[in-house]
Computed example of a mutant assay.
Amino acid sequence: MPEGRLVAGARLAVTTFTVLPLRPGRVDRPAAAVAMALAPAAGALLGAALAAALLGLAAAGAPPLVAGVAVVGLAALLTRGLHLDGLADTVDALGSHRSGEAALQIMKKPDVGPFGVAALVVVLLLQAAALAALPTRGWPGTLAAVIAATAVGRLAVSWACRRGVPAARPEGLGALVAGTVPAPVLVVSTAAVALAALGAAPGRPWQGPLAVLAALAVALLLLPHLVRRFGGITGDVLGAAVELTTTVAYLGLVLGG
């Protein structure tokens, strides 16, 4: 019996955004549309696991920075490092000052250049430092913050896959998901992630939603430049969007202590 679109899309969302070993299922544009719409939900589930690990390490007496670094490493493990790889490849291509096919060829190379290494170091350090500051808020604030930051990183992917944004190549992940997410889904998802961030900064209920929306705005402002440089989105561009948006959200969430 053929797998339904919703089930196939949910399976694709989980296998794209996490390392969970689900059996292969249907992969086509209708399933991809569901998967990209469900990307923030997959991020929220991942965020809950990361928050649990962070709180567990804090309760066990781990120094804050040690706990933060460990959770950053766990996040890379649970996503197979794909988004970090996408960030490095995208920044290397941008740093080359090349456009179109020449830039895409740089993104295909298996090695990481100096621009990519610098981007990885900065992003990982910022994420670890931000995570180190969260447990002081208690478990409700920490849980809300990590879920919101992780979910908005995947929400940026949903927005990058909105209708009207082209794929850079005729094949690959970008071609499968480009232009699949309708505007009403994006509005509902954005509202849901912003609401999930309400408890992320105890005593300042506005800070969580504002941090989420600011991080998403940064990604949306950068996206047109990436489309101009590369001709559209690619899997690497989506991975870069995840890491950049998540990092900016963490920064917004920890400002002010």
Rank of each mutant, 00 (worst) to 15 (best):
G179R: 02
D92S: 14
P135L: 14
A60L: 10
L65I: 03
A178T: 08
V177S: 01
A191I: 09
T190P: 00
K109P: 04
A33H: 04
M36R: 07
A42I: 09
L12S: 02
A183E: 10
A128Q: 06
P114E: 15
G208I: 01
G95R: 14
L244R: 08
L50F: 08
T16V: 12
P2W: 07
A67E: 07
P40A: 02
A31S: 08
V122G: 12
V242P: 03
P184R: 02
A76F: 12
A211M: 15
L57Q: 08
A52Y: 11
V27L: 13
A201K: 12
V112T: 09
L12H: 05
A67V: 02
T142C: 09
A31M: 02
L176Y: 03
S96A: 14
I106E: 15
G164H: 01
A39I: 13
A168D: 13
L238S: 05
A60G: 11
V69A: 12
F17T: 03
V66N: 01
A49K: 06
P135W: 14
D92C: 14
A48C: 04
V185L: 11
A241P: 02
L222K: 12
L20I: 05
V218R: 07
L210D: 05
G153W: 13
F115R: 12
L223Q: 06
D89K: 13
L65G: 02
G25F: 00
P114V: 15
L216Q: 04
A52N: 05
A103K: 12
L251W: 15
G203E: 11
G73P: 03
L134D: 14
L124D: 01
G141T: 13
A51G: 01
G231W: 11
L226D: 13
V146I: 04
A128I: 06
G257F: 08
A240P: 01
G141H: 14
A103L: 14
E101R: 03
L84F: 08
L251C: 13
L223S: 07
L55H: 03
L55K: 08
G95A: 06
R5A: 04
A175Y: 01
L82T: 06
G56K: 04
D28R: 02
H97F: 15
A62R: 10
A53C: 14
G235F: 04
G208M: 04
D111T: 11
A217P: 11
I147M: 04
L143R: 00
V121A: 15
A132V: 06
A194Y: 03
L74G: 04
G172L: 01
A241E: 11
S158N: 01
L57G: 08
A194P: 06
L125Q: 03
A13R: 10
Q127R: 10
G95F: 03
A42G: 01
Y250A: 04
V165F: 06
A132N: 08
A33L: 09
T190K: 02
G179N: 08
L45Y: 03
V117S: 15
A103I: 15
L84E: 03
R204Y: 02
V254W: 11
L87Q: 13
G43H: 10
V185E: 09
A103S: 12
P114D: 15
L54P: 00
A215I: 13
G203R: 07
A49V: 09
K109N: 02
L222E: 00
T16I: 11
V157R: 04
A10Q: 01
K108Q: 12
A102W: 03
R26M: 10
L46S: 10
G81K: 07
R204H: 00
A149P: 03
A103C: 13
A41N: 04
A35T: 00
A42S: 09
A88S: 07
A130R: 06
